[in-house]
Deep mutational scan, measured.
Amino acid sequence: EPSQADLDALLSAVRDNRLSIEQAVTLLTPSSGGGSGGGSMDAKEILTRFKDGGLDRAAAQALLAGRTPA
């Protein structure tokens, strides 16, 4: 399960175009075949909204942490 520091680094990389959204989703869902963790939004949607400015960093982190299976 990614830590808050991992999520923060991942969000920074996506925002700075050092990591594509697809690459980030793969890192967030290493063994689930890329499927959502059952959250209301999947990781790709969360990351896309964050990059487009629709979500701030704290909200994106909380959503990603919340949808990651324990």
Rank of each mutant, 00 (worst) to 15 (best):
E1A: 10
E1G: 09
E1Y: 15
E1M: 13
E1P: 09
P2W: 15
P2R: 07
P2V: 08
S3L: 13
S3Q: 10
Q4H: 15
A5C: 15
A5F: 15
A5K: 07
D6V: 10
D6M: 13
D6F: 15
L7A: 02
L7M: 08
D8K: 06
D8G: 08
D8E: 11
A9V: 07
A9R: 10
A9P: 03
A9W: 15
A9C: 15
L10W: 04
L10V: 11
L10Y: 03
L10M: 05
S12E: 11
S12W: 05
A13P: 00
A13W: 06
A13D: 05
V14M: 02
V14L: 07
V14P: 00
R15V: 06
R15Y: 09
D16E: 07
D16K: 05
N17A: 05
N17M: 06
N17F: 04
R18Q: 09
R18I: 13
L19N: 01
L19E: 01
S20D: 04
S20W: 02
I21F: 02
I21W: 01
E22S: 07
E22V: 07
Q23K: 09
A24P: 00
V25E: 03
T26V: 11
T26I: 14
T26P: 03
L27W: 07
L27F: 09
L27R: 06
L27V: 04
L28N: 01
L28R: 01
T29D: 10
T29N: 11
T29I: 10
P30V: 14
P30I: 15
P30R: 15
S31K: 11
S32A: 10
S32V: 09
S32L: 13
S32P: 09
G33F: 13
G33T: 12
G33Y: 09
G34Y: 03
G34R: 07
G34T: 12
G35T: 13
G35C: 12
G35L: 12
G35P: 14
S36I: 10
S36T: 12
S36W: 14
G37P: 13
G37S: 09
G37L: 12
G38W: 08
G38N: 15
G38E: 13
G39Y: 09
S40Q: 12
S40D: 10
M41T: 07
M41V: 09
M41A: 06
D42L: 11
D42M: 10
K44Q: 09
I46E: 00
L47K: 00
L47Q: 00
L47I: 04
L47M: 03
L47E: 00
L47H: 00
T48D: 03
T48F: 04
R49T: 03
R49P: 01
F50N: 00
K51G: 02
K51A: 04
K51P: 01
K51M: 06
D52H: 14
D52E: 14
G53D: 03
G53C: 04
G54L: 15
G54D: 11
L55H: 02
L55Q: 01
L55S: 01
L55V: 03
L55R: 01
D56N: 07
D56F: 02
R57E: 06
A58C: 09
A58S: 08
A58W: 09
A59F: 05
A59E: 09
A59N: 05
A59Y: 05
A60H: 00
Q61R: 14
Q61K: 15
Q61F: 11
L63N: 02
L63C: 04
L64Y: 01
L64R: 01
L64C: 01
A65V: 08
A65F: 09
G66N: 11
G66W: 10
G66R: 08
R67W: 12
R67I: 14
R67F: 13
R67P: 05
T68E: 11
P69V: 11
P69Q: 10
A70W: 02
